[in-house]
């Protein structure tokens, strides 16, 4: 996976080196968590083979070791250009921010309402659609999934206060 950099690179917001270091620290921390968690269950080898914690324990150790190697390589590799520049970061945040909002809305208001609000907002603000098109599409998608999942296939999704108020669920 290579990514073509623009002809005139925008100023780097996060350097590749910083990103490598952060990723290595993150995986290292995950590995350490696994090691700590696994120690609770016994990490030895008895007559019944490895104890429950043994496999995760050594996995964790390998993750920590390999993360350290990645950390060293990341630091030594030099700055290595941009991980994201300003323009890319703006694009990513403009896309990712609403997703986070969508999940928050979903958890509080249910999936159908969350999805409708999310689609409406994104189409209105980013897609620059007229409000009634956005409204139609977002409502349409939610109702479509509601009918198909809840009514036809009887797969219940997360529901919130609105569905309860309507007496649907």
């Amino acid at each position: 996976m290579t990514h073509t950099t623009p002809e005139t690179p925008a100023p780097a917001l996060v350097s590749r080196r910083a990103a490598e270091v952060a990723a290595a620290l993150f995986t290292g921390a995950l590995g350490a968590t696994v090691v700590v968690g696994a120690r609770e269950y016994g990490v030895g080898w008895d007559s019944a083979g490895p104890q429950p914690g043994a496999f995760p324990f050594y996995l964790g150790l390998i993750i920590v070791a390999a993360s350290l190697a990645n950390l060293v390589r990341g630091v030594l590799a030099g700055a290595g250009g941009a991980f994201v520049d300003r323009d890319q970061a703006r694009q990513v945040l403009a896309f990712f921010g609403p997703i986070v909002a969508f999940v928050v809305l979903t958890v509080t208001l249910g999936l159908y309402v969350g999805a409708a609000l999310y689609l409406f907002g994104v189409m209105l603000v980013q897609g620059k659609y007229r409000w009634w098109i956005a409204l139609l599409v977002s409502m349409g998608v939610s109702v479509f999934f509601f009918v198909v999942l809840e009514r036809w296939f009887q797969v219940p999704l997360l529901k919130g206060p609105l569905e309860a108020a309507l007496g649907i669920y």
Binding site: L111, G127, L149
Partner: peptide, 20 residues
């Protein structure tokens, strides 16, 4: 601008239904 967010919704519906 429409299909992108719809795929996002699809992804999360899929994730939720795995074990509700």
């Amino acid at each position: 601008a429409i299909i992108g967010p719809v795929i996002v919704v699809v992804c999360f519906i899929g994730a939720y239904t795995v074990s509700s």
